[in-house]
Computed example of a mutant assay.
Amino acid sequence: MKPDSIRKFDLFYLGSLAISAAGFIIGYDAVTAQIAGEGAAQGLALGPGWAIGAFVIGIAINLLLWWLTSAKRIAIAKWIIVLFFLLGLFSLPGTFAGGLTMLEVLSLVAVAAQAVAIWFLFRPDAKAWFAGSEPADPQTFD
């Protein structure tokens, strides 16, 4: 049985992915325009299919890392999630350079939810769970 911290990790991590998906859908036109502009500047023809493909691959990678962490107890996946989160923090200030729009607010909420999810991975019951020494469930004998 998963400890409470891992169940909360699931909730916040998957919630952050859902918020990111909502942000992608809301800002789809802006994202595709930005990608097309950046691609044209580099001599590449990057269309809307490229944006959708990149987003789907990113979500798939995140879901794989979540599954490896939450269902399979693979600690290296936990550290990869932390690494991706930290790398994402470096790009966060550039996100708000143009002002605070609905898309940026959703992005900030997703980052906050992911931060909370990662915090739950380092709680004592989660550490014991990753180590394979699950603590007794206090409700077992109720």
Rank of each mutant, 00 (worst) to 15 (best):
G37H: 10
T69L: 02
F90Q: 13
V56P: 01
E38K: 14
A110T: 02
G94Q: 09
I59W: 01
I80H: 10
P48E: 13
A113S: 15
V56M: 08
T32A: 03
L106E: 07
K78F: 03
F55W: 08
W50V: 12
V109Q: 03
W66Q: 00
E38N: 12
Q42M: 14
L89Y: 10
I57S: 04
G43N: 13
P93S: 12
A45I: 06
L44A: 04
F55P: 02
V109D: 03
V109R: 01
A113H: 01
A36S: 13
I57R: 03
V31S: 07
F90R: 06
A45F: 03
A45G: 10
E38V: 02
W67S: 08
L44S: 07
A77T: 09
T32Y: 05
R73V: 07
V105H: 05
L103C: 03
A75M: 10
W67Y: 14
L103H: 14
L64N: 03
K72W: 07
W119A: 08
I59C: 06
A117T: 06
G39V: 04
V109T: 09
I74N: 15
W50L: 13
I35T: 10
L63G: 01
V82Q: 06
L92E: 13
L65N: 04
A33H: 05
Q114A: 12
A41P: 09
I118T: 09
M102T: 12
I80D: 09
L108M: 13
S70P: 06
I118N: 02
K72I: 02
I118G: 05
